[in-house]
Each structure stands twice: as structure tokens, then as C-alpha cells.
Design a protein around this nucleic acid. Sequence first.
DNA 1: TTGTAGGCGTTATCAA
DNA 2: TTGATAACGCCTACAA
Lengths: 337, 337
Amino acid sequence: MSEITIKFLAEKLNLASSTVSRALNDSHEISDKTKKRVLDLAKSLNFQPNANARSLREQKSKTIGVIVPDRVNNFFNLVIEGLESVCREEGYSLIVYNSYEDVEQEKKIIYSLLGGKVDAVVISLADEEKEVQHLEWLREKNIPILFFDRVARHVSGLKYTTNDLESAYLATKHLLDKGCKKVAFLGLSNTSSVGKARQDGFIKAHIEHGLVYDKNLLIGFGHDDIENQKVLEKLFYKINRPDGVLAAAEKLGIATLRALHNLRIKIPEQVRIVSFTNMQFADLLSPALSTIAQPAFELGSTCAKELIRGLKSKNINLFEEKKIELPSKFTIRDSSK
Amino acid sequence: MSEITIKFLAEKLNLASSTVSRALNDSHEISDKTKKRVLDLAKSLNFQPNANARSLREQKSKTIGVIVPDRVNNFFNLVIEGLESVCREEGYSLIVYNSYEDVEQEKKIIYSLLGGKVDAVVISLADEEKEVQHLEWLREKNIPILFFDRVARHVSGLKYTTNDLESAYLATKHLLDKGCKKVAFLGLSNTSSVGKARQDGFIKAHIEHGLVYDKNLLIGFGHDDIENQKVLEKLFYKINRPDGVLAAAEKLGIATLRALHNLRIKIPEQVRIVSFTNMQFADLLSPALSTIAQPAFELGSTCAKELIRGLKSKNINLFEEKKIELPSKFTIRDSSK
DNA sequence: TTGTAGGCGTTATCAA
DNA sequence: TTGATAACGCCTACAA
């Protein structure tokens, strides 16, 4: 680490370190002449105030902790990009953690954040029904928590989601309108508000169509891609296989496509598909995939704006329970025509 | 931020804060009984030592700064994932910055990192030929720099790359073997060692085949996706269009696919394509895309291991010039058969 | 085995 | 307008 400190600059310039500090912070109580002397020297030495000392003194780190269940996922990446675009402007850095869809991991991460490393936490939960006690830890330490996508059900706070129920409803309605008789709903089997909402939308469309949905067609998947692939191939190998699919997660939509390819089943003639995904080349898949794309970047930037506003105003009320819902975009392509 | 500090614990337990500190750090000079008392209280209060105070005192932050030119890109994401997988184990956090392919942005980021916010920087450069002066700033402050993928040509250090020349050579040879007469090389036009190596491989294959490559077919692209799309459509609309493409970047491979689709040109009958990409569903594209996939995760994890080793040993020599090259994987699919 | 004191680099309060 | 001093919370040398 560098030996150049405010004290060092002060000695060089025959000033008190407090004067140098004020000059660097452009305080009005310092003469222009002194300011110039200080700034010139600082610049010439590439001086940058020690971040840790400042954070300690100010009791804030200008850093936001972000916790996502799956860092490589396109959706979370775009959200992070949205968060960063705003935070960067405001001089905040992001530390991103991956909980790997594991509540225990999430707990560890949060525990490690309890010592003033971050000023706030933005999180998409690994599992919403399991313990929320670690979220309370943050509360106790007065570290604001904001939720997005997979939001906490039993903890209050700012919550940013997309219109999952409605999107799933529209997609399912579309499949039924196209004549599908047996539509399968593929979801991740962790207990998540998102999965729940999408499933509710799926069911709602069936009811409106006067149909009874088959409970066996609400299928839950884990995080083992190879295992999931097997389950899907088994599902579509059956005589009375589904003739429509609503995949509530990108990886499931992709796995379905792959399964159908392997089994030489024609899309959309034999099976129609719609998948939730933020992939940028759904139109180039074989066949072009009908998608529901979440407004990921906007979710991140909207959340960050509110967060920074709250952090600046120090008005705790700004972090009170509030639900913000942004609309996803449903695009019909060849896979469900 | 929390009011619970070591001093607070000490008062509660009628101990000196130094004793508590030592107990928390499991020092051998503290009795088991005292340790237990301290640990129990700490745990019950969810005590976590203040990270900023500790960093200030220790002169290290246990945080690594990562700078990539394009955060949403699959390749960089996987590298970051690889970095994190190792860093997490070792108790290091990652702060990731996006330079948006812009050297000025990169400079700003690095300047902001000069104050002890991070213990080291891992970077893939925005542009390798432009100024490297900001890299020297890090040197001066004794902050180690490690490079990956787009490595600095005129700055020494640890450099992690993939066998770009060879991969491009193999892919080009494959296209020529398949009978392509006019292969285009699509690269990003920033001056990058990566782009250069891939182009060299492309040229080498032509020479070996006894062919003269057309300089007009070495095409450089910027970062405006819409503009790139136009350029490609113009290129393939021509009568004497290329009959083969080596795309040196994922976005260019995708844009080519899209252009050919729009023009109703058949792949591989009329044009064959191979693209560099780390996309996970290249096999599901229309047609399945031949790819060169870089070992992104391994690049990250290998780099992180060496970094941590260096940081621990405090042996500066460990960060001296060394080039590590990992092999990419070339997979032939329908798009070039 | 435990306690005392000082300093990491910064900023804010008070005094000059 | 500038200077001296204390404090943020932690760790470590030295003392007991």
C-alpha cells in the first residue's frame, strides 16, 4: 500500500493535516491559493485518500453488497449491470456474492457483511420459505436490505419484482389458444414467490379456459442440469406426453429444447414452447424461441436509484415496505406458432 | 452501522479490549475459559469485527478489484466466476468494475483504486496499445496487477491467456479444408493481443494452404451492434460475398448468423461459420454453431490461485512476468460441416 | 494469561 | 483562514 498520506502532503507543504484534508474536500474555509497548492501536489503524486480510514471515520463504506443465487445467469447479470450503472455515477462500488441457490451459503455471506463492509444489501433470495433470521441480523445492524425478483415474504422492505403472474397467464393462454391440450409447467422447486406467481398465472389461464390442469404437469426441478435433462427426456418419451410447455426458468427452457431435439420431436407441430429467459438470441435458436423477458436492467437501475436516495437522505422510512412491479415482455416466435 | 465493538464486548465481560481481540483471533496466549466467554457473547450478539478498522490497521482489505471491458459478456462472467470460486474460499471479496471497452473509464476506475480499497487488481484491458500509464500508478502504490485475456504488451506481470493463434489457425484450416475460397475474418477493431493472435492464426492457415488471403476480408468492428449488423448485411448482400466466416468475438458470430438469416442465405451450404464464444447453447442455434470456447472458468481460478499465493507469501517475485496459456476447445457443428 | 498504550489515515470540533 | 487534537475500531508491542 502507498505511503503517501494526508499527513505526508501536509509536511511537504508545511500545513496541518486538517488543512490539507479540507482542501482536498474543497471546503469553503480554505483559501484558493492553499487549495491549489494542495491539489497540485496531490495530483502530481497520484494521491488517493485511504478508503479504509475514510470508511472507518465516516462509518460508511460507499459500497453495496449484492447477493444473487446464480451469478452466471443472464437475468441476474443484467440486474447487476443496472445496479452498477447507477451506483458508479454516485461513487458507490458493488461487491457481488453468489449464494449458489443455497440458504446456508447466503447466511454465511450475510454474516460476513455485518461488520460495516457494505452500507446496504441488495438481494435475490436463495429460498424464500426457509429461515429469514439472517435477514434480521442486517436489520439489527441497521443495514438496509432491498429485495428483487425472489423477495422475502415475511420480511418487510423495498421489493422489486416483475409481473410474473400476468406474464405466465398470457403465455399459457397463448398456448391454450393455439390448441394445446396438455401444457406442462416447468419450475424450479425451491419455494419462491416468483415460481409461485408464475404457477398461479399458469393455473389461472387454465381455469379461464374452463380446463382442469393436471397436477402431474406442474413439475419441479432441482439444480442438477444433467438430472433435469433426464427427467425431461423421460417426460417427452411417454406416449401421452405434453403438447405444450411453459418453462419458468431459462435453463429449463433450454433443457426442454435439447430434450425435444434429442427425441426428434417437432416444435411447434408436436410440442409448443414458451420460456422465461433474458437470452439475447432467442430468435436464432432452432426454432426461434417464444420468450418472456424480464426487464432486468431496469429492475437493477430502478432499485439502485431508490437505494442511493435512501442512503443519502438517511430517512429510514424510504426503506419501508413497498412493492414495485415492472412489466416483462412476451414475444411470440416459431416455437409456439 | 452496529454499535457492538470489541470495546463493548470487553466492558460487558470485564476484560481489556486487547484480550477480547486476541480471544476472537484464537490467540494461544488466551485461556480456553476466557476464549469461550468471549466467543459465546460475540456469537450471541452476532458480532462481526469492523472491516474498515481492521483493513486500516492491517493495511490490507482482503478485497480484489476486477476490471473487465464488458461485464455482461459470457466469457468475462465465467472468468469472474472462476476468480470468485477461489477467492471466496480464501476469504477474499471481489469488486468488479466494467470499463465498457473505454480506456478513459478504465483510468478512472484504477485511479479510484489507488487508496487501499483493494489488495490487487485483475484486469482484461480495454485497449492494449493505448496508454499504459495508469497501470504504472498501481505499480507505484505496490498494488499487484494480473492480466488475463487482453494482456498488456509493454507492462510486465502475470498474464493468463488462451491459445488464440492456434485455435484460429485450426478453425481457419477447417474452413479451408471444407472448400471455402473466400473466408472473412471478423474481429473487434481495438488493438488487442487477442485479436491480433487470432488474425495471425487465420493468416497462417491461409499461407499453409498456399492461399493469399484478401486483406479486405480482415474486417474490424466497433461496439455499436446495430452498425455492425448493417456492415455484415452489406457484406453478404454482395455477389462475391464470403463463403466462410471466422468470427473472433461472440457478438460478431451472432450478428453474422442473424445477417445470413435475414438474407435467407443457407448455412453451411452457402456460407460456413465458426465463432469464438462461450455460449452454452451453441448446439441449439439454427444451425448448430461451430465454436471455439475459451476455458474461461479455469482462467479465472488459475489466476486467483496464483494471486492468493502471492498475496500470502508477500514475495513480490511471484508477480513477475510470466505467461500462462490455457487451451481453448474447438467444436465442429452443423454451421461449418 | 491479561492489561495498557499507541497508531493505522481520515475528518470534525474547537481554538487561534 | 489555519492549526492542534481527538476519535472512528482494530491489533500488537510492551508491561504486569
